[in-house]
């Protein structure tokens, strides 16, 4: 499933694994947690080889996608269960739970059962269950995917704040690139069991290592053009010899008197910005977004030029060429 992963995550870092479904991001997280074992290779935590160590003894805590709260226990028992299994003194358990409850503002929920909680509250309890263990790292497996859109945004902010406060290592798996961009110190983009790029969000956005990353990060998607189609933006002579494909983000196209000719198919006026769907004479579809309100009508012919330095160039294998 996973091939040639070589990755180091730093102390206190917020690392996000992102990629399309089936890319191996959850598998990688489960192998770090110890729930699954790798067929080959080594996993080290704090310099200790834990490849053969069981999940319970590795140190990190996990927050599951379904929260996996014990439905028949109260919130308090859910938080205490793991600590009791560690034979921790009662007073210590109580103080840890109180601390976590204060931090997550779930003190009034302690005697309820999971079924009596809202989605956001369950999410907090699930995080609380990880916090009380005082883990070496937090492993979060798509923790926000079961929440509605609005709640997801606010929980995202809370997670970021929590990380800032705890300064703990967090590894976060998601398929949502917005979550990845907003939360991560570093993003690991995976595809087909392999790492495509490891970089900070801005690095990823500004200098994607290959066509896949370029297309995956950023919304709407980056436009890809052949060398001939891109000639209206930049003459082929100006491109490196190995160049095979040119990419430009929808935000980096600027209206002009002349330049690349685009026939408008559909214009979506969102108020703060306008998204124009159109096609080139060759038939290739393109998307342009401009801030503000831009009058455009289906069938109309518009011209665009590229903002300087915003073109991405890839070779025949799709690897980025800097020029």
């Amino acid at each position: 499933m996973l091939k040639g992963i070589d990755l180091e995550i730093n102390e206190g870092e917020f690392a996000v694994f992102v990629g399309p479904s089936g890319c191996g991001k959850s598998t990688l997280l489960r192998q770090i947690s110890g729930l699954d074992r790798p067929s080959s290779g080594r996993i080290e935590i704090d310099g200790r080889d834990v490849t053969t160590v069981g999940a319970a003894d590795r140190g990190p805590a996990m927050v599951f996608q379904s929260y996996a709260l014990y439905p028949h226990m109260t919130v308090r028992d859910n938080l205490a269960f793991g600590l009791q299994n560690n034979k921790m003194p009662k007073a210590e358990i109580a103080s840890r739970i109180a601390e976590a409850a204060r931090m997550l503002e779930i003190g009034h929920l302690m005697d309820r059962r999971p079924a009596q909680l809202s989605g956001g509250q369950r999410q907090r309890v699930a995080i609380g269950r990880a916090i009380v263990r005082d883990p070496t790292a937090f492993l979060l497996d798509e923790p926000l995917s079961n929440l509605d859109a609005e709640l997801r945004v606010s929980m995202r902010a809370e997670l970021a704040a929590l990380h800032a406060r705890l300064k703990a290592t967090m590894i976060y798996v998601t398929h949502d690139q917005v979550e990845a961009m907003t939360l991560a110190d570093r993003i690991v983009v995976l595809r087909g069991g392999q790492i495509e790029q490891v970089a900070t969000p801005m690095e990823l956005f500004n200098r994607p290592a290959n066509r896949f990353v370029a297309g995956f990060i950023g919304a709407p998607r980056m436009n890809f053009l052949s060398i001939d189609e891109a000639a209206a933006l930049l003459p082929a002579s100006a491109l490196p010899a190995a160049a095979e494909m040119v990419g430009i983000r929808p935000q980096n196209l600027r209206p002009a008197e002349s330049g690349m000719a685009l026939t408008v198919d559909l214009a979506e006026a969102l108020g703060t910005e306008t998204v124009i769907h159109g096609h080139l004479a060759s038939g290739t579809k393109m998307i342009v977004t401009r801030a503000g309100q831009l009058p455009a009508h289906p069938g109309e012919l518009l011209h665009f030029t590229a903002e300087p330095g915003k073109l991405h160039v890839f070779d025949a294998e799709g690897v980025r060429i800097d020029f």
Partner: peptide
């Protein structure tokens, strides 16, 4: 019963 629940318990050091 969700397998994740059992995994959570296993991470909680339950035998």
């Amino acid at each position: 019963i969700l397998d994740e629940l059992l995994e959570a318990a296993r991470m909680d050091k339950a035998s």
